[in-house]
Design a protein around this nucleic acid. Structure first.
Lengths: 188, 188
DNA sequence: GAGTTTCCAGCACGATCGTGCTATTTTTAG
DNA sequence: CTAAAAATAGCACGATCGTGCTGGAAACTC
């Protein structure tokens, strides 16, 4: 399917320029197509942007969520998703979720809504995995799994900033230190 | 000074649209000026964008750094900067540092470089304040203050996401829970 | 108050934006 | 092999982009 190939290229470009910075012209050039030929696959630019976010979400599931779910439930799985997530952040151009969040956080519209719903899913995936650790008795019964999710997400975001923008070589080590601190605190 | 008023408006707009989404035309309309009249104050759009980042940095110093430095050294000051920083994130349109970081993280050029240098300063401010807590004996001698800075920054980033994008009402409480967990872990 | 400098509007430019319409080519179906 | 359908290219449109030049208004200097 040509449409899929176009979308993959579009996602790749949007990681650099953002979804607003993505233009039909440059995308067509990168895909070796005419502007109108490419445009015909999508009814509007907004639809293209939405499709990009959707495709990016599928890739995230393939590269982060599914591999993590293949690991045994509990802390092991939580550790795994953090690891895959950190690898995800090293994609050339950066993370499209974060770019979209920064672009549409205060601009109402369908793009904002879809971005927010995806972001909500990400956090709930973290919370769900944390709850398997509760079910296994690795975390206390009364653990606030959304608290865990928010903190893990913070560790990931901060890692992304430190390594991607500031190029701190210790960013990954420090992220794991923070993660282990969280685990210790929950288990004591 | 007209230039200052233009810049304030430009920063306000860029918080919504990002620095790339900022256009001379709409900025001129918002400032009740002609495009060319406004443009004359800056030699190029890139210079305007740089000036915006500079102005945004000044505002951050006014609203976050300086008030925090007015508090007594140590944990009190660290707590204060987190509090002011969280308030900073509630600016309409969001945080321009984060927007700029997402826009320019993988695009080389002067904008990237200035963004990175500002981001580095932010992190070093956190580390510096953490080190006053070490000097006061509130944190152990061998504390890695950049570890503390990275973790505090993660708490702040995550709070921003939860509250701004997902509108979770408990985001602030959970951020403070995470912060206190970090303090406990450092002091034990 | 005259002269000089700074500020700003008007206007125009080439480029590129998103978006349609119309053929023409390519693929699919019968 | 032919007919219907889908994919793609060519082209044009109005709008807006960043950027300059040129002239007049405003402010400041002596």
């Amino acid at each position: 399917m040509t449409r899929q190939a176009i979308l993959d290229e579009a996602v790749r470009m949007a990681r650099y320029s953002g979804l607003s910075g993505l233009t039909i012209g440059s995308l067509a050039a990168a895909a070796d197509m005419s502007k109108s030929g490419l445009y015909a696959h999508f009814k509007s630019k907004e639809a293209l942007q939405l499709a990009c976010m959707e495709r990016n979400g599928e890739q995230f599931i393939d590269e982060v969520i599914r591999p993590a779910l293949a690991k045994p439930r509990g802390i092991t799985r939580l550790q795994a998703i953090v690891e895959y997530w950190m690898q995800w952040y090293s994609h050339p151009g950066g993370c499209l979720f974060l770019a979209a969040a920064a672009e549409f956080d205060d601009l109402p519209g369908p793009l904002h809504d879809f971005m927010a719903s995806e972001q909500r899913e990400l956090l709930e995936s973290l919370a769900r995995i944390a709850s398997t650790a509760v079910a296994q008795g690795e975390f206390p019964e009364d653990t606030d799994v959304f608290q865990v999710a928010q903190e893990v997400f913070g560790i990931l975001l901060s890692y992304n900033w430190m390594s991607r923008i500031l190029s701190y070589p210790d960013a990954a080590d420090r992220a794991w230190t923070a993660f282990n601190r969280l685990l210790d605190s929950l288990q004591s």
